[in-house]
Design a protein around this nucleic acid. Structure first.
Lengths: 239, 239
DNA sequence: CGGGTAGTTGATGGTCATCAAGGGGGGTGG
DNA sequence: CCACCCCCCTTGATGACCATCAACTACCCG
């Protein structure tokens, strides 16, 4: 993990994800305060930067790339609890240790804030706290959806739900992306750990969807959704 | 659902769960503000008081009893995302409609706040917002644990985890309850919907644990945990 | 006594995990 | 440049775990 001090005054001014992140609530005049406490890091693919159970010293803001968040059992079984896209805020653990691990899926850039600096910011900018509450509430809704998926949906329903989620991810509401073309940065193993399945089941299910004419599976990490309607029928629980 | 206006000045002063709830951050001198906007309701067992998808007009604070929170699929499959004990705050939906339903398990009393009154309170008492963020963060941690359970644990591991959670629920940390004696207010069906299992599997698993000498299953809703250690081995993933 | 709900236990089957084999792409080193 | 390896993915065969279907008991209330 490469760190570079955020001492430049324009560090946050030029940040492309600021409009989508919690930082957007800081007024332009106060942005320098933000830049003073932010440290940018680049995390290579596969590298972890939050260890489950370790002391929670920092908060993070993803500025580019995709991060996987996960919990693990002693024997190695792993559950990915979410993927964090640019703009996502990480580290909302109240206790003094992280309740989850975080690892870069592809090349990731994050802004790091120390816990104490963050507390100062919260004291000075009440809007920031409100924004964090909003962020946390959104995550709670997502978590509840995921619990429904993990507890009650079949493999096909899970994969369909996942593909639909990915189509809407990172897009403003009401937009449907570019013709259903997806570029998933994560491996089949990651998808499996996210959906509570095995690699083989994910692979088989995607193949089945391809045979049904619902999707096209391209090279690398490309998937094209051909029929959103069919996927929605599946995801809603008819499959 | 029976409503009674919270116009009494001592309404919140005498509230037994205030120390454990978000209301604790309101200074004694300002408690009247709280009492003005709170409306107490009594909800009989099995009655729902938050409907998934309905406009989110109110916030709730559980003052006695147990509430189940759930999401459902069109065909009736249901996932209980959590049980809310006294002191628990409900309704943290950012969007304008509830993302989940809520239903009384046993007889429940709740304090209801209208959304707009709550917003006023948040403006006047910044501490309240911080407390809510704390509450939301705790729920997120619980949600992540539940995702691990639903996605990666076996039936036995799930039931063991559930029983252990119930032993610690509603107790201050470091306390181990009264000799492992539990009084679960929810039915086998509720437990099944919470753990992503069926009624039969929950029942069979409890019978198996009884045969192993881990628990005693009493009449009604009583369960006595005889060996916390064995359950912990199971819950951690050796079963 | 009859009906309804909740729980337990048994028999059977389906869905998905596990075990196993093979293909394809990208990297490194000869 | 090609051989080699490793990782990721796919596909097949088998089996385990848990859902489903079903019967029965206990309990509560009218």
């Amino acid at each position: 993990m490469i760190g570079s001090g955020g001492v430049q005054a324009d560090f946050c001014t030029t940040c492309t994800v600021r409009p989508n992140s919690v930082c957007s609530v800081i007024e332009p005049g106060d942005i320098s305060r933000l830049a003073e406490v932010a440290v940018e890091s680049i995390v290579p693919p596969g590298r972890g930067f939050i260890e489950e159970g370790a002391p929670a010293t920092d908060f993070f803001n993803v500025t580019s790339g995709t991060v996987k968040l996960f919990k693990a059992l002693p024997d190695g079984r792993r559950q990915i609890t979410g993927f964090a896209a640019p703009g996502h805020f990480l580290g909302l653990a109240v206790s003094d240790s992280y309740a989850f691990g975080a690892e870069a899926v592809d090349t990731v850039r994050v802004c790091r804030f120390s816990r104490e600096k963050m507390t100062e910011l919260l004291d000075d900018f009440p809007k920031l706290e409100r924004r964090l509450l909003e962020e946390a509430s959104n995550e709670l809704v997502a978590a509840q959806n995921q619990m429904l998926l993990l507890g009650r949906k079949t493999a096909r329903e899970r994969v369909a739900s996942f593909l639909l989620d990915q189509m809407h991810a990172g897009l403003p509401p009401g937009q449907d992306g570019n013709g259903g073309r997806l570029h998933l940065p994560m491996t089949r193993g990651d998808i499996a750990d996210y959906l509570g399945l095995t690699i083989e089941t994910v692979s088989r299910t995607l193949s089945w969807m391809r045979a049904q004419g619902m999707i096209e599976v391209g090279k690398g990490y490309a998937i094209t959704v051909l029929s959103v309607a069919k996927l929605e029928v599946l995801a809603a629980g008819n499959g």
